[in-house]
């Protein structure tokens, strides 16, 4: 009974994630699309909970929903004229596009069915933040440091992009 309910919630959330993600792409109003993205991100956080990744779920909400999306919404709403802008992403070559997308989808389904993924039983979920912290400061120290270098140059690049045009030389 419990697993039935669990499965029902899972598929319900999956439907919300897919539906809102679709709306983000096809929606005409930028602000509506941004709000649909909130639902998609929240849904993904729920998936993390299902996988027993409590820290990741929290980080997802804090960073994506709380940080990035809020910033995105501010950006959209503070930009003149964009609020009422009707976006229409043109669709060209619908048939070849749909065909190749369908082909890739079929291929992926087939691979997911055919490969032995060696799935493990996760057991009872427990707090993961301690082991993540130990790994980041131990085995994954170098990737952790390199990620900070990556963020540093991304920051520099962003600062460079927003620098007023024409004053690039001063």
């Amino acid at each position: 009974m419990e697993s039935m309910a669990s499965a029902a919630i899972f598929y319900g959330v999956a439907a919300v994630v897919l539906g809102s993600a679709l709306y983000v792409v096809v929606g005409r109003n930028l602000v509506h699309s941004a709000f649909a993205l909130v639902a998609a991100f929240f849904g993904v956080a729920v998936f993390y909970v299902y996988l027993g990744a409590d820290f990741l779920a929290g980080a997802q909400v804090l960073i994506y929903v709380g940080g990035i999306l809020t910033l995105l919404l501010f950006g959209v709403m503070l930009t003149n004229r964009i609020y009422n802008l009707n976006l229409r992403s043109g669709a060209i070559q619908v048939v070849p596009g749909a065909l190749s997308a369908g082909l890739v989808f079929a291929l992926l389904v087939w691979i997911i069915q055919s490969v032995d993924w060696g799935a493990m039983d996760a057991g009872d979920p427990g707090p993961t933040s301690e082991s993540i912290g130990r790994l980041l400061m131990g085995d994954y120290l170098l990737p952790f440091e390199i990620a900070s270098v990556l963020l540093l140059i991304a920051l520099m690049g962003a600062a460079m992009l927003v620098r007023r045009r024409g004053s690039g030389s001063s």
Binding site: P143, I146, V149, I153, M156, G157, R165, G168
Partner: peptide, 26 residues
Amino acid sequence: VNLVMIYLSLETVSVASYIMVGYLSS
């Protein structure tokens, strides 16, 4: 020799290259 390192280092090179290519903002 680790998949995480392969991805991270490749991404660092890519992001730096994007910025260098667009350096002449005018």
